[in-house]
Amino acid sequence: MHCQPPDLRLVYNWLFNNQSCLLCGDRAEAALALCAPCTLELPWLRERCRRCALPMAIDGLLCGQCSRRRPAFRRVEVPLLYAYPVDGLVTRFKHQARWPIGRLLGELLGQWLQHRFSEDLVRPDCLMPVPLAPRRLRQRGFNQAALLARWLGAVLAIPCAEGTLLRPRETTAQQDLPARARRHNLRQAFRVAADAAVNGRHIALIDDVLTTGATAQAAARCLLDAGARQVDVYCLARTAKPRRY
C-alpha cells in the first residue's frame, strides 16, 4: 500500500521552507517546524530504565519489571515522554493522517538517534516497522510505524526491511486493554515472512509509542526465535509507569 500523501509538497514544504512553529505560531528559524523555545520545552525523556526506557528517578538503573524478567529486546531508544504536547501530536499523526506532523516527529527521532550513534549506540543492520493487522491497516489507511521507518531509513542511511515482520492475526486494539491483557492479546500475533533473512542480524523495531512494552516484547521474541542476533526498539515517545489493574 502506498502510504505517502498524493502531493509530497504537503510534507516537505512544511519542513524545509519558511514556516511557523507548529506549537506557538512564532517563526521557526530551523528546518523543523518548531521554534527553539518550544523545542527546549518539549517533554524530553531523561532519567530512564537502561533497558526499557521507563521514566525513573535515577538514570541508568533497571526498573522493577526488567529486573524481574529480562525483555526479549536489548534496549529502547526514545527521545520524548508521552505527555503534552507530544501526546496530541502523535494522536493527530496516527488517527487523523497528519503526515507533516509525523514527519516532524520522525525528524526529531532521527536527530536523537544520530546523536546516540555518535556516542555509543551500535547501528543496526536494518530498521523494521511494527506491522498492523490487515483489517486495522485497511481502516487506518496507513501504518504509522512504516512511515517512520521509511523516513528514518533515509535520514540514517539504514535499510528498511518492511514486510519482513508480519501480523496476520487480528487482535484487539492494545490501547483498549489493561496491561496484563495486552500480553495475552499478542500471543502468536507476529510471524516472520517465509523468505525473510533475519538470521544473525541486528534489528531495530520502529514504533510510535511504547506503553507497557507488550507489543515490542512479542515482536522481538518472534524475531529472536527466527534467528535474529539482537533486537532494539526505536520509538517516538515513552509513557510513564503503566497503570496497575
Rank of each mutant, 00 (worst) to 15 (best):
I101M: 13
I101H: 14
I101L: 03
I101R: 07
R103Y: 13
L104H: 03
L105C: 06
L105I: 12
G106E: 15
G106Y: 10
G106I: 12
G106H: 09
G106W: 12
E107H: 07
L108G: 05
L108Y: 10
L109F: 02
L109W: 10
L109D: 00
L109Q: 08
G110T: 03
Q111G: 13
Q111E: 09
Q111Y: 02
W112T: 04
L113W: 11
L113I: 14
L113S: 13
Q114I: 06
H115P: 00
H115R: 08
H115F: 12
R116M: 10
F117D: 12
F117P: 09
S118W: 12
S118V: 07
S118K: 10
S118C: 01
E119Q: 15
E119H: 06
E119A: 05
L121T: 11
L121R: 14
L121G: 00
L121K: 09
L121H: 08
L121M: 14
V122R: 13
V122P: 02
V122N: 01
V122L: 13
R123N: 01
P124N: 15
P124I: 07
P124E: 07
D125F: 06
D125A: 14
C126V: 07
C126T: 02
L127N: 02
L127T: 11
M128F: 15
M128C: 14
P129D: 10
P129H: 09
V130D: 08
V130W: 08
V130F: 01
V130T: 11
P131R: 09
P131D: 10
P131L: 14
P131F: 15
A133M: 01
A133R: 08
A133G: 14
P134S: 11
P134F: 12
P134A: 15
R135T: 04
R135H: 10
R135P: 00
R136V: 09
R136Y: 08
R136S: 07
L137F: 14
R138H: 12
R138N: 06
Q139I: 11
Q139P: 00
Q139V: 06
R140P: 01
R140I: 01
R140H: 08
G141R: 03
G141K: 10
G141Q: 06
G141F: 03
F142H: 08
F142G: 00
N143Q: 04
Q144G: 15
Q144D: 06
Q144W: 05
A145T: 05
A145W: 01
A145D: 01
A146Q: 03
L147Q: 07
L148D: 05
R150L: 08
W151E: 08
W151I: 04
W151M: 04
W151K: 03
G153L: 13
G153V: 09
G153Y: 13
G153N: 15
A154E: 15
A154F: 15
A154S: 10
L156W: 03
L156N: 06
L156K: 05
L156A: 08
A157I: 01
I158N: 06
I158A: 03
I158T: 07
P159D: 02
P159K: 07
C160E: 14
G163D: 14
